[in-house]
């Protein structure tokens, strides 16, 4: 994860800290994501993943530290930074009563894309998640997995080069999870970097870059295989358990 120059990073986080009142949520978080790479932000519930996402998307502001998206500081140049970012939040944020197209048109407008150009972008974006045939359907008629894919299409609509996904497979069955994961992994071949936040260890592949976040601090960083080797564990699940020091809490992460 550090083999490339930081100025070229899709996402660069340096010493990010955040607290809710006196409770520290993030302490000195530092890592970067290379362009066109797949990076897993692995942590149990309450590890600080969503807080970190809120900082990256400027819903919250870092009290200290720095976050840059393709070199643009999120606090100082939020417009430039957010233009290059697509986000899939943990809780679904689609309007169920209107069509897929109408939902995506709204998102296009939020990025200043006029309706005519938006329609082209929508078709292209839905193609990327294999949902082009559901354009006119009401979102409420889609399955959970399809809704997630619409959210990914929405996040890709303005052609960002960095995608943030916060627990995107929560509540989905195994097949839908695999489909979503496969879709996002394939995007890296198209030049999109993805930061995939999850508490599910089985979503990590050996070749993935991994950031292990626990109680607001980064405990492990690097390629999954390297983390496994460094911790002396037999697999990533064992490595994660050793790092967070809590076997029991991993039951929900399997």
């Amino acid at each position: 994860m550090t083999e490339f120059a930081l100025r070229d990073a899709a996402l660069e986080i340096v010493d990010a800290c955040y607290s809710y009142g006196k409770r520290a949520a993030l302490t000195g978080v530092t890592f970067s994501v290379a362009p066109a790479s797949f990076c897993v932000l692995l942590g149990l519930n309450g590890a600080g993943k969503s807080t970190l996402f809120a900082l990256i998307t400027r819903l919250f502001t870092t009290r200290s530290g720095r976050i840059r998206i393709f070199g643009h500081d999120v606090a100082r140049e939020p417009g430039q930074a957010l233009r290059r970012l697509g986000v899939v939040f943990q809780s679904r944020a689609l309007d169920l009563d209107i069509s897929v197209r109408e939902n995506l048109l709204y998102h296009a407008a939020l990025h200043g894309i006029a309706p005519r150009k938006a329609d082209v972008a929508i078709n292209k974006s839905l193609d990327r998640v294999a949902l082009a045939d559901r354009l006119r359907d009401r979102v409420g008629e889609l399955s959970g997995g399809q809704m997630r894919r619409v959210e990914i299409a929405r996040a890709l609509l303005h052609e960002p080069k960095l995608l943030l996904l916060d627990e995107p497979t929560v509540g989905l069955d195994i097949r839908a999870r695999a489909a979503i994961l496969g879709t996002v992994r394939a995007l890296t071949a198209q030049g999109v970097a993805a930061l995939w936040a999850t508490h599910l260890v089985d979503e990590v592949a050996e070749s993935d870059q991994v950031v292990v976040l626990h109680r607001g601090a980064v405990l492990g960083l690097g390629q999954a295989a390297r983390i496994v080797a460094e911790t002396g564990a037999s697999d990533i699940r064992g490595a994660f358990a050793k790092l967070v020091g809590d076997e029991e809490s991993l039951e929900g992460a399997a």
Binding site: G79, E102, Y106, A109, G112, I113, P115, H158
Partner: peptide, 30 residues
């Protein structure tokens, strides 16, 4: 869509209006 060069600049007035109309349209549909 926007080019890399235009992305470096701020939004145009037309894009601000597109954003406004999009939000109004969504509120009306809702």
């Amino acid at each position: 869509m926007k080019t890399a060069a235009s992305a470096e600049r701020g939004f145009t007035l037309a894009q601000y209006l597109t954003c406004l109309i999009g939000i109004v349209r969504r509120e009306a549909l809702r």
